[in-house]
Simulated assay, not measured.
Amino acid sequence: MEGNRDDLMRVIQSKYAKLSKGQKLIAEFILKQYDKAAFMTASKLGASVGVSESTVVRFANELGYEGYPELQKSLQDIVKVKLTTVQRLELTNSLVNTENALKGVLKADMENIRATLEKINEQTFEQIIDAIFEARNIYIIGLRSSNTLANFLAFYLNLFLDNVRSIHQGYSDIFEQMIKLNKDDLVIGIGFPRYSQKTIEALDFAKSRGAKVSVITDSLLSPLAARADYSLIAQSNMASFVDSLVAPLSVINAVIVSVGMRKKDQVGEIFNTLEEIWKKHDIFN
C-alpha cells in the first residue's frame, strides 16, 4: 500500500510543472494532505484551495483518470489502511456533524451494501461454500474489530457443523490453536483496514501448512486477499472513526444462510431440539 501512495505522489510531482496555476494548488494540497483530500468531494476540494469544481475534474484527467471519482478512490485505497484512530476522528468531524450523524452513517452503510452487491463474485461465493463442506476442519480467524464478525460466523456455523474452530488471541498463541492444521483444512480469515498483522501471519502459517484459505475483506489489494485461494470482497468505506462492518456482516449472513440451506433437513432438526432446550432452561424471556 505504501508503494501505491508513492506511485501516485510521483505521478503528481512529475506532471506538476505542466499543470495550470489552479491545478498546482490542488496538487500541493494532495501532496501535503492526501488523507483529507481522499474524503472530499470535487467541489469541497476545489473550495478548500480556491478553484472551481471543473478545475478539480480537469486535474484528475491530467493524471490519467477518467474523472475525479477514480482519483478519489485511488486516494481512499491508499489512506484507509494508514489512518490512525486520531486521524479518523478528525475525518469524522469533517464528514459527519452532530445534526446529521444518524442519517450520514446510515446512508454510508447503505452505500457500502449497494457497492458490495454490485461487485461481489457469486462464483467465488459458491466456491467458498463448497470449500466449507469439503474441509476436514474449518478455522475462523478475525482479530480486533473483525473479531465480532468471526465470532458471529463461528457461532452459527457451529450450530450446523461439527468441525468449526474459532481462533482467539489471548488465552494461547494463535499458532498453537492451529498446530494440527493441514492440507485438508480450510482457514477463513476476516480483516478490514487497519489490517491486523496477527491475522496476516496466521494466513501465512495456513499457506505454509498447505491449507486452503478463504478471506472476507475489503479489496483484492488487501494483504489478506494476497494470501487467499478465495476472496469475498465487502466494501467497508468508513464514515467515521468506527469501522463500517455492515456490508461484511451481510456477506457473512449470506454464507451462514447458504450453508444452512444445503443442510436444510438437519438444520430443522437442530433448531427443534434447541427450542426444546431453550424452553426447558428459560433461555429466553
Rank of each mutant, 00 (worst) to 15 (best):
I26R: 05
E28W: 08
F29T: 06
I30D: 00
L31R: 04
L31M: 07
K32E: 15
Q33P: 01
Y34V: 05
D35M: 03
D35V: 03
T41G: 14
G46H: 00
V49S: 13
G50S: 07
S52Q: 10
S54F: 04
T55W: 00
R58Q: 10
N61K: 05
G64M: 00
Y65W: 04
E66Q: 12
K73D: 09
S74E: 10
K80A: 01
K80F: 04
K82R: 09
T85Y: 10
Q87N: 09
R88I: 00
E90Y: 12
L91P: 00
L91R: 05
T92A: 09
T92L: 10
T98R: 07
E99H: 11
A101C: 12
L106T: 15
K107Y: 04
K107W: 00
A108F: 08
M110W: 02
M110C: 12
I113M: 13
E118D: 14
K119H: 09
I120V: 07
N121F: 01
E122Y: 05
I128H: 02
I129Q: 01
A131N: 11
I132N: 04
E134R: 06
E134C: 06
A135S: 12
A135K: 06
N137F: 08
S145C: 12
S145N: 12
S145G: 12
A150L: 09
F152W: 10
N158H: 07
F160G: 00
D162T: 05
D162C: 02
D162L: 02
V164D: 02
H168L: 14
Q169S: 07
